[in-house]
């Protein structure tokens, strides 16, 4: 145990690292959540349909997708 204590004493302020880690994550997480909640629904729906936008049904985004969405609901 003496050894472990010595190591920990040797590096000042070690206990701050986990706290910084959690705080950075929380701030980051809150930022992402706020941003996601503020996203516009029609845009999000359009994004989520990108994989389904096949060659026989070209392009996206610039087009009004509301008709498709109402079909899928």
């Amino acid at each position: 145990m003496r050894l472990v204590r010595n190591i920990l004493e040797g590096v000042a302020g070690l206990e701050i690292y986990p706290i910084i880690g959690i705080l950075v994550f929380l701030a980051f997480f809150v930022g992402v959540v706020v941003w996601v909640l503020r996203m516009k629904k029609n845009k999000v729906d359009a994004y989520s349909r990108i994989p389904l936008d096949d060659d026989d049904n070209p392009s996206i985004e610039n087009k009004d997708l509301s008709k498709q969405q109402s079909d899928s609901k």
């Binding site: 999000v44 729906d45 349909r49 994989p51 389904l52």
Partner: peptide, 12 residues
């Protein structure tokens, strides 16, 4: 989504 032919449940 491709195989089920429907978009992902929640993009957000």
């Amino acid at each position: 989504p491709k195989a089920a032919n429907r978009p992902v449940y929640s993009y957000k």
